[in-house]
Design a protein around this nucleic acid. Structure first.
Length: 346
DNA sequence: CTAATGTGCGGACTGGCGCC
DNA sequence: GGCGCCAGTCCGCACATTAG
């Protein structure tokens, strides 16, 4: 199909992601109209220009991927070269590509796009799980200045919500209930929710287990941080920089006052699956993926996202895709979910 | 009541880069 | 240098709720 335009999206960390806007095309039963181009290097590698015809594929039947530029006499090349903007398309702030890095980033700390994405991340299911706080609500909240940081979420009143578009009593109350419920979530979620660069779900869990409280984490020195699993110098530095910022320390205090869980106990893990790495694929019948993951981790195992020769087991449910193929290729042991349950039980 | 709208769910890929 | 986490990305569908 044809690339009609290339737009730029700004993420939570300020990363500018170029996205190809395609002439809609039906692939495998769904209509594909966008595909990520990742970064400038990828655009150069593919050699794409705006107006080009390209071959698009859905990796694993889901994610649209631009494979290559089609060059034949029917499909003339486009003429407009895409250039990464020098100013953020959202806030106009300076865009910088650091030496040695592939991504361009907006460096304005107050960029509204970053705020918006940070709030969305915080509210998302894998983090504070605030059901109902998606795109539309977050846009309204940030546009109206009702939410300027993640702690402001806990100051939202019903009156605030009722003034918003498409909000009546039922929706407003649902959101408030969800916000209230989020306060009970454990420390690792809160750490993850802060949006510290290089600290994702897994690293946040290790940090919570190691330090046992937000206070201990906030005041940790470099050497303390380096003791944590999977934390090296770059991650340690990123965490220290985050907590050296007075605004961020104040943010944590606001979360504390709001009643969030900022301490936990050092988690005890089982040992039955110690040292074993699992990969989940397909649809499981008796567990959600999160439940299966928790079972494995509580038994001392690890769950990762991709199959390699270090993977011990691939747990395959219905409609397993490319990961199952990879497992066969690498001769990794494939089991079903009841076999997994047996392993967990010992 | 119906139509429109917003959101979660659930599947998964990718390149970059940090860690070991 | 390999591995795997991080951060970003996709879409259709089901469902709840609101506006009209």
């Amino acid at each position: 199909t044809k690339i009609e335009d290339i737009i730029v999206q700004v993420g939570r960390t300020g990363k500018l992601t170029p996205v190809a806007m395609l002439k809609p095309v039906s692939i495998g039963g769904t209509t594909v109209s966008r595909a990520t181009l990742h970064n400038m290097d990828e655009i150069v590698r593919l050699g794409v220009k705006i107006g080009d015809w390209v071959e698009v594929e859905r990796g694993g039947d889901v994610i649209p991927k631009v494979n290559r530029v089609v060059e034949d006499k029917d499909h003339l090349r486009g003429h407009k070269t895409f250039r990464m903007p020098q100013n953020c398309p959202v806030c106009g702030g300076q865009v910088v590509r650091t030496e040695g890095e592939a991504d361009h980033r907006c460096v304005n700390a107050n960029c509204p796009a970053k705020l918006r994405e940070t709030i969305l991340h915080f509210a998302s299911r894998g983090v504070m799980n605030i059901d109902g706080m998606g795109d539309a609500l977050v846009n309204q909240l940030t546009d109206r200045g009702l939410v300027r940081n993640v702690a402001d979420i806990y100051k939202i009143t019903k009156d605030d919500l009722l003034k918003l578009e498409r909000f009546a009593d039922k929706s407003a109350q649902n959101v408030l209930n969800e916000i209230e419920a989020s306060k009970k979530l454990p420390l690792d979620r809160v750490i993850y929710g802060l949006g510290i660069r290089f600290v994702g779900e897994r690293t946040a869990q290790f940090l919570a287990e190691h330090f046992g409280s937000m206070n201990a984490l906030m005041n940790a020195g470099e050497e303390d941080l380096l003791e944590v699993e999977e934390v090296g110098p770059r991650i340690a530095q990123s965490i220290r920089e985050f907590f050296q910022e007075p605004k961020n320390r104040e943010l944590v205090e606001q979360l504390r006052r709001a009643g969030l869980t900022l301490s936990g106990k050092k988690k005890e893990r089982g040992t039955k699956l110690a040292g074993k790495t699992f990969v989940l694929t397909g649809t499981l019948a008796h567990y959600t993926r999160d439940e299966a993951k928790k079972l494995i981790e509580d038994a001392g195992g690890r769950v990762s996202g991709s199959v390699s020769k270090k993977t011990d087991y691939v747990v395959a449910g219905d409609d397993a895709g490319s990961k199952l193929d990879k497992a066969k290729q690498l001769r990794v042991k494939v089991i079903n979910e009841s076999e997994m349950a047996n392993l967990v039980a010992g």
